[in-house]
Design a protein around this nucleic acid. Structure first.
Length: 284
DNA sequence: CACACAACCTGTCAGC
DNA sequence: TGCTGACAGGTTGTGT
């Protein structure tokens, strides 16, 4: 589900309600996610207050008034929902409930269980292995044209998987990589190093599409919802993602799809022409 | 080091 | 209607 715009939208929703709230009770329904919940989550969180909800890459960092930070990732299908306390049995894929001190509850729902919620001391945040491998935030200064050009110049593989590599830049997943490349007029199979001279445009388009998506509350394909339970709307603004067989909005060619590194890439063969390196025969 | 690929797990949808 | 296989927003580990 969630790329940067979706996680950021969830963060904003949680930031609206959680800071100042205290967790009264923790209920674990099914702790065996791909990465299991921290042991002793109840004893470490009950009685604690949220202070601040921060995002790094696609991770949510929920700072608590004690020493602990909740590090959460939504995987493909995870959702956090804040709502009035409900009674009765949890839904099939609801794995966690935090009962708050104001009559609300936070639930974590994740059918595929690719998500992750662990606790760690805030002092270990900067050295946590999940976070130290991450590249710059796309909406911050570190993701500069010079930086991107330098990174791309060292890569021989195709540009699209490179943009999805979190060690190069975080937050750009399958949807927004395709959309940004369409805007930049770059074929997803173009060798990354040949895109170095267009790094400035790529930075611009990646930032633009991410910011527009945030402004629309993210993209809802299936599972994604905000912390208030409402869907995003940016899926209505996709130019190429999921549109194979449709007409390109710019040129009327038919959108195509290919598989790269196990993921589907969508593109317009006309607007994103793959410039094949020409074989130069001997001049005569 | 860069890259491709399988694995993690469940639900959905297309096709037969 | 039911079965099967392909595929889905992400990340990590393994192998080349």
């Amino acid at each position: 589900m969630p790329e940067l715009p979706e996680v950021e939208t969830v963060r904003r929703g949680l930031q609206m309600t959680l800071p100042g709230r205290r967790i009264q009770r923790v209920e674990l329904f099914r702790p065996d996610l791909r990465v299991p919940f921290s042991e002793r989550m109840a004893e470490r969180l009950e009685g604690r207050r949220f202070t601040d909800i921060v995002r790094r890459s696609k991770y949510l960092l929920m700072h608590m008034d004690g020493l602990d930070v909740i590090l959460a990732h939504l995987g493909m299908t995870g959702t956090f929902l804040v709502r009035p306390l409900s009674n009765g049995a949890p839904q099939k894929h609801t794995h966690l409930r935090w009962v708050l001190d104001d009559g609300q509850e936070v639930i974590y729902h994740d059918p595929r269980r690719f998500g992750l919620i662990v606790l760690l001391p805030s002092t270990e945040l900067s050295s946590h292995p999940l976070l130290t491998v991450l590249g710059p935030e796309p909406l911050e200064e570190g993701f500069s044209p010079d930086y991107l050009a330098e990174q791309l110049s060292r890569r021989k593989g195709p540009i699209k998987p490179a943009l999805m590599d979190a060690s190069l830049v975080v937050g750009v997943g399958n949807i927004y990589a395709s959309e940004a490349l369409f805007r930049a007029g770059i074929h997803p199979a173009t060798p990354a190093h040949r895109c170095a001279k267009k790094a400035g445009e790529l930075v611009t388009h990646i930032r633009a599409v991410l910011m527009e998506a945030i402004a629309s509350g993210g993209s809802t394909l299936r599972d994604y919802a905000t912390a208030e339970g409402s869907p995003g709307y940016f899926q209505h603004h996709f130019s190429v993602y999921g549109k194979a067989g449709n007409s390109c909005e710019k040129c009327d060619s038919t959108i195509e799809k290919i598989t790269q590194a196990g993921r589907t890439s969508f593109f317009c063969p006309q607007c994103q022409m793959l410039k094949v390196k020409k074989f130069r025969g001997k001049k005569r």
